[in-house]
């Protein structure tokens, strides 16, 4: 997540879903989106800038 950008609540929900479900497929199912979509949203969270 780049510095200065507002945190997207949807991205937060995807992050929580992936980490709680332990898999992209579980998270995608919980969020009602495709696995590739889920991976893309989660990918945004690799790092967070100070």
């Amino acid at each position: 997540m780049p510095a200065g950008k507002l945190i997207d609540m949807y991205a937060v929900q995807v992050f929580v879903a992936v980490t709680e479900e332990g898999s992209m497929s579980g998270a995608a199912s919980r969020m009602g989106i495709s696995q590739s979509g889920c991976r893309r949203w989660f990918g945004n969270w690799r790092t967070i800038s100070a």
């Binding site: 937060v12 992050f15 929580v16 709680e20 332990g22 969270w45 690799r46 790092t47 967070i48 800038s49």
Partner: peptide
């Protein structure tokens, strides 16, 4: 700040990632 340790399988959260998940869950 790294959120996820991708060198392990299954991937694990760093302390920053854990903080994001815990607070994010409350916000969700």
């Amino acid at each position: 700040m790294i959120l996820v340790d991708r060198t392990t399988r299954p991937l694990t959260l760093t302390p920053f990632g854990l903080a994001l998940r815990n607070r994010g869950a409350i916000l969700s």
